[in-house]
Amino acid sequence: MKPAMKIEQEILIDVDKCTGCRACEMACSAFHSLPKFSSINPAKARIRVVSDEIRDEYVPVFAGNHTKSGCDGRHVYTLDGKTYSECSFCRASCPTRDFFIEPDSGLPLKCDMCESTPALEKPWCVQVCGEEALTYKRTEVPREQATQEVSGEIEASLQALMKQHGMEAVIHHLKEMANKDR
């Protein structure tokens, strides 16, 4: 039997190629406005170029998941002699910064790879990146393999929980959660 396939999409980011022009932000906000392309507002973009001219820092970062709380402390990375705050690479919309928060509603924003019918050849941010600092990769992977990977992850997590709290407690909680869901 041919395994069921699923699409995996990736945006590859080459920070050395970024010129800091923010065309990606422009195009993202234009595409996601209603009606499409009717308004432009980089503050509504689901991609941000974190830039700092003085320190030669140019990092495009995409909106990921929302998190309710900010972080207590941050790592500072030194890469090629330049320092970056962990914040520069973080994809979360969080309360500690105004990234990826819709400025009018306060709702979190998340990159959707420009989900659209018909599908786009590649997301708009990638289409307008003249320097190919952003490139798009689309691969088909078997769904089963993906499911196996997930199963493995769940098993590892459950084993860790059982080691800490005992099997009884874990089963009890799972039952309770299942009841609540009903």
Partner: peptide, 26 residues
């Protein structure tokens, strides 16, 4: 610092034109 929107009158046609120019420039 600005977080408001700039609106355009004829969105779809404009974006098509501007994207063509953007690509040509690149």
């Amino acid at each position: 610092r600005g977080t408001k929107s700039v609106n355009v009158a004829r969105p779809a046609e404009l974006f098509e034109m501007s994207h063509k120019i953007h690509t040509k420039m690149a």
